[in-house]
Nucleic acid binder design. Structure first.
Lengths: 203, 203
DNA sequence: ACCTGAACACCGTTCAAGT
DNA sequence: ACCTGAACACCGTTCAAGT
């Protein structure tokens, strides 16, 4: 007697189509950039018909939002790794900034999807939550600096927003090609920027 | 439903179709955002067939590059206006930062086109030149601050890049909805950010 | 439950043809 | 010289139908 379950799996089930779609989207974005994404091409790469994705995502944007959410989780992890070896709160502050810009430049397509205007954050709670987690890590860094008197007292949230804006600006301008530098020189500029900011935040 | 089409003056001449296309593109982007642009909709609004634009622009991207170039010129003008009434180099520095973010938030679609990944700067020399002009204004501000000993000596270009990154980051995160603030509170955050940075840049 | 093919209303771009 | 209509190869999304 033939195993209908396996046959049916091959005929109808993809194993984990949701995961396959997220992976194919990330791969496509990596190859062609944030604007090179199309739902139909993703379906082709996943080996399913062009409307099969709708079983797992409400729309093309929902799929992108899924990739963006996982991007924020990956970014958070990268920042945690970068600060793990830091000797002082100031060192952690500088290192996390450099790691942030490096993450963006290593995955420019994904980064642009994360902050692209295409995604209205409202309506994608998972994405919103993941972005908040990443930001909270930065707030913690600022608070740690304040506790050890490296930074002056005051609204940690506002200071974290300023610090975030600085590295996001560096990353986004670099991706746009406006800074005309990459690699080592960009890392140096980021470390310099972060040091200047730390000095401005001193008590 | 409003009819956006413009009545043609006669069968062949539009007067200045190039200008009409740039205007229609800006209007469309203002209404629907940077991603809402399509060449065919622009042609419809200009009252010409969907391929008439190719007489004036090599591609859809070339039209967007034209709008972006004019955007950089408008941004430069806004920054000049903002610093005109400044009392000190430090005041000028803070004012230009606030004006920068206000420009971006007043024209989010246009701003995103100016820095969007869709435009490779190479191949659009007019755009490249206009962007450079805007940046040069900022370098001048930094140098003026150094001459009057408000800022420490050192690479003015790098310092301008850091200052630019800060306001670009604030503007872009605000447009993305990540800062969750707008208007007066965003202006205050920008002024605060710029003041913190100025302190960091002090001698 | 999950996936498909056909269909609809769009795109950007090209090209021969019209004035 | 400037513009048009038709055509091509794409899109995202919807829907009835198949297993």
């Amino acid at each position: 007697m033939p195993d209908h379950r396996v046959r049916r799996r091959n005929a109808y089930h993809h194993g984990d189509l949701r995961r396959a779609l997220l992976d194919a989207t990330l791969q496509l974005i990596t190859e062609r950039g944030a604007t090179g994404f199309t739902l139909r091409e993703v379906a082709r790469r996943a080996g399913v018909s062009h409307n099969a994705p709708y079983r797992h995502f409400r729309s093309s944007d929902a799929l992108l939002a899924g990739v963006a959410a996982e991007g924020f989780t990956a970014l958070s992890a990268a920042l945690v790794r970068a600060t793990a070896g830091a000797t002082t709160p100031l060192d952690a502050f500088v290192r996390s900034g450099v790691a942030y810009v490096e993450f963006a430049l290593a995955h420019p397509g994904r980064y642009r999807v994360m902050f692209g205007s295409r995604l209205k954050k409202t309506g994608h709670p998972t994405l919103e939550w993941a972005a908040e987690q990443a930001f909270n890590g930065l707030v913690t860094l600022i608070k740690r600096g304040q506790e050890t008197h490296v930074f002056a007292e005051g609204d940690a949230h506002a200071r974290a927003q300023v610090a975030w804006s600085l590295v996001h600006g560096l990353a986004d301008l670099a991706i746009a090609g406006q800074l005309a530098i990459r690699g080592r020189r960009l890392r140096e500029l980021t470390a310099f920027a972060r040091t200047v900011l730390a000095k401005g935040l001193r008590g």
